[in-house]
């Protein structure tokens, strides 16, 4: 596309606006998970913009690698660190916020002014010809990767391997104590406090057999041990419907 037609313009304003919205959401959200989601929004919109600029391969790679892999990695780490972690709004460093905003706004103005002044009369060449050389955008990028940018390609592959190794080394937990053997585990289980056997599983009824449905003890009372602790703590225990129990008992012929 040598010039920007109307359709592209609409796409630009829409996706661009959403991208800016996502960026604002990133920096203004209190909870970290919300920020992650806003970022994902920005990235998807950017993928759309890539496609609009005749870079379909990059757009797909953006979705798969960035939004798919990188942001999911962020969310996993957020789970480790704590989904509830939130920042207080009070700035501890004096003047940091003000100076940062001034500088960033200044940077934006400079870049816009500088680049805008330089690109007023530029007519985009468009990538039809470049994409058509090898029969498509992917082929064109592949040709460049494996000829002009081969060394960079090899180096980045080495980088990826190194990064993976680095992550393994960093995340490795060193075992300080010897691994407990089966015998020790059994001993600990039976001589210590706590229930040595398995905990009772949740109740199975005709209409409910979910995790939050308690099992019944022999005297008819619900067993608190059959429900996972967090649910108990939150008060999400479903009350047992004794009407159903009696109904079944009567069907059963009264055998208790």
């Amino acid at each position: 596309m040598t010039e920007v037609n109307l359709g592209e313009e609409i796409v630009f304003w829409f996706s661009g606006g959403l991208a800016v919205l996502g960026a604002l959401g990133l920096i203004l959200s209190r909870k970290a998970v919300h920020s992650a989601l806003w970022v994902a929004l920005t990235m998807i919109n950017l993928a759309v913009l890539y496609v609009a600029n005749s870079a379909p391969f990059l757009g797909m790679v953006q979705v798969v690698v960035y939004t798919g892999a990188v942001m999911m990695l962020f969310l996993f780490v957020l789970m480790v660190v704590g989904v509830d972690s939130s920042d207080s709004l009070i700035e501890t460093l004096k003047g940091q916020r003000l100076v940062a905003i001034v500088l960033a706004v200044g940077l934006a103005i400079l870049l816009v002014a500088g680049i805008g002044a330089g690109l007023t009369d530029v007519v985009p060449v468009g990538l039809d010809e470049a994409n058509g050389v090898d029969g498509g955008n992917v082929q064109g990028i592949a040709r460049l990767l494996f000829t002009d940018y081969l060394v960079a390609f090899e180096v980045t592959s080495a980088l990826l391997i190194t990064a993976a190794l680095g992550a393994m080394v960093l995340a490795h937990r060193e075992r300080w104590l010897p691994r407990a053997s089966q015998e020790e585990l059994s001993k600990a289980r039976f001589t210590g406090t706590g229930h040595p056997g398995n905990l009772p599983s949740s109740g199975t009824y005709a209409r409910h057999n979910a995790v939050d449905t308690p099992a019944l003890l022999p005297d008819g009372s619900p067993s608190a041990q059959s429900i996972p602790g967090p649910l108990v703590a939150r008060g999400d225990v479903r009350p047992v419907d004794h009407h159903d129990v009696e109904q079944i008992e009567s069907l059963d012929g009264g055998s208790k």
Binding site: Q96, L107, L110, A117
Partner: peptide, 28 residues
Amino acid sequence: QSGFARSYALSMLGGAVLIVAALVLVRL
């Protein structure tokens, strides 16, 4: 040398702004 990474980042941004400003001024 306050020990806060954010203040270091702020000075980095400041330096970058200065360089861009210089480039833009030379260009214009």
